[in-house]
Design a protein around this nucleic acid. Structure first.
Lengths: 328, 328
DNA sequence: ATCGAAACCGCAAACGTTTGCTGTTGATAA
DNA sequence: TTATCAACAGCAAACGTTTGCGGTTTCGAT
């Protein structure tokens, strides 16, 4: 049983397919009565326009591809929500691909996007991605691309990121305000650009306070963070403050600190994190944090991409989002 | 600058578009030399076949829609990974839509899938969804549908779920084995089918042990779980065991128990959870759990859907996955 | 020399929509 | 009466790919 088409409706209504097409789109050339009649028939026949045909005709399948380094990050869901909120309002669809922190997969995902004929690409880079050559193919085909969150700075593609440098700096300053003396700093993997920038901001702020002792840890995973944190608390029993770079790190650090709570003063340490915002309230005590707003990031990136799609070619634009403190 | 098409290549190679099409698909009718020549040209011209045209011609856009009740759940990422792993191997694309636990949005998402012309739908239901009427439109259009995880039992659509009843039962029995006497049971919202089934299994097992005291809590969110757990520990200071229905609940319960650790014996209670597996290791002490394998669920559901797509019409099939214990 | 089969390739229709152009009405104004 | 115009609707091409069918060449076998 084949799908109902414009032709079927036309036959049924005794008009041409063009009239049906126009009627269903409320084209002024079609009389009200005919419109009503056609719409009724379409309704009854359960007509649904063929997306592929529309895509072919209009040279746009109204879909954008989202390539993520991984899908397990705490940050991802809110980002996706932000993206879909603006996409849906423009009846665009979203195709999500994950690279699993694997550069090769990322390359493949780009190819998939191209093959699928997406109208634009939103991409957050793998921690193993150190250049953007794989984006060239897409660029040659004039597919708009926006980098978001995990990015590499350049002047070819647009970017939407948070001000990581400033975030790191603000967190250090927050701790200083709290009169701490010895800080354990837990970061993500150094291969990540955001790690480098947060670290840099943190260190630059620290350089103004030479008396403050700071120890840096770079953690590959939550589990790694847990181990490193446990060690650090034995090694630096006098540390009175903790900086946590991300939610992933937070899970591990918090677990380790609990473990050491009774013997050490883990629970009394001053803690500040950069977080998406869900987890901190469930730490004990709740952890104050600088909010890394994924939703906002998503909306802005999606909006920017849609702009580029409709007004191409656009010159690259870079948007840097600010962060805000949430103190418990 | 328009996209390169078969026609362009044909012109360049001095052959017809049909020959180009066949050559690029390694059709045996085309000589090796011509194939090589055409492939080279296609490569040089950066040819990428138009997905919409292919979709139109083949009446399949090789895409399936995944509708999720929410995207924040801990369970979601591994499920998506499972799904994409089988989809990718068949060059199918995935379109993800989220309903935000809103029935209306779910209805709308179904419509979006239909409009997009997906080849099949994978859907996990909202906690506010109590019937499947909104799936009828898709069913009439003969779009294969598979329900996964959050489902409603019926005999029209296929389902892939875990054995929630058994999971609840097994958890109770686990606690009994540990000689516990008084159990605090933390569940998700009762509107969820999986809550009902896990509860039922738990209670049925409990009914065989009338001496064991059990207290039930139904939590709408992690935060709610935290509150309820705090209260419960004050109200039942002698409770010596905890059952946790899900990761969301676990986050809250764990936070509350930490808070009461010093005054109460929270940390010494026997705990068992149903979990995706990531979080338990970061609880303190790590929480033993019955693994709710999202990855596996995803692969099986996706496989089932693809089967239905290729051999439709298929009669509904229901797959119930088992769970396994991971004990710390 | 003739036949047949294999190797190779093109024609044209089809998939379902959209839209520029054309053409037919009927009514109104001159 | 005729010119003008608005309202209405159809024709046919176009989007890019696939594929059934048919046609031509080549070549070996007879």
């Amino acid at each position: 049983m084949h799908r109902v088409t414009l032709k079927d409706i036309a036959q049924m209504a005794g008009v041409s397919t063009s009239t049906v097409s126009r009627a269903l789109k409320n084209h002024p050339d079609i009389s009200h009565t005919v419109k009503e009649k056609i719409k009724l028939i379409a309704e009854n026949l359960n007509f649904v326009p063929n997306a592929a045909a529309i895509g072919l005709r209009n040279k746009s399948i109204k879909t954008i591809g989202l390539i993520l380094p991984n899908i397990h990050s705490f940050f991802v869901p809110s980002m996706i929500e932000g993206i879909t909120s603006v996409l849906n309002s423009m009846q665009f669809k979203l195709m999500i691909l994950t690279s699993d922190e694997d550069y090769e997969k990322e390359v493949h995902n780009i190819a998939s996007c191209i093959d699928s004929g997406v109208d634009g690409i939103l991409i957050s880079l793998t921690k193993n991605t150190c250049d953007l050559n794989h984006l060239d193919k897409a660029a040659e085909l004039e597919i708009p691309i926006v980098l978001l969150d995990k990015s590499i700075h350049q002047n070819i593609f647009s970017e939407v990121v948070i001000d990581d440098y400033k975030a790191g700096k603000l967190c250090f300053e927050y701790l200083i305000d709290k009169q701490v003396k010895e800080i354990l700093g837990f970061f993500g993997p150094l291969s990540l650009n955001i790690t480098k920038e947060r670290l840099e901001g943190f260190q630059d702020a620290a350089s103004l306070h030479p008396k403050i002792k700071t120890y840096y840890y770079f953690c590959d995973s939550s589990l790694d963070a847990k181990d490193k944190c446990s060690e650090s608390m034995l090694e630096f029993p006098n540390a009175d403050a903790v900086f946590i770079m991300s939610d992933e790190v937070m899970v591990g650090v918090n677990a380790a600190m609990y473990k050491n709570k009774h013997e050490k003063n883990g629970c009394k340490m001053t803690r500040i994190a950069i977080s998406e915002g869900y987890l901190p309230q469930f730490m004990d005590p709740p952890i104050s944090y600088l909010k890394h707003d994924g939703y906002k990031l998503g909306t802005i990136a999606a909006q920017l991409l849609l702009d580029q799609i409709h007004t191409n070619p656009a010159k690259p634009e870079i948007k840097i989002l600010d962060t805000t403190f949430y103190i418990y």
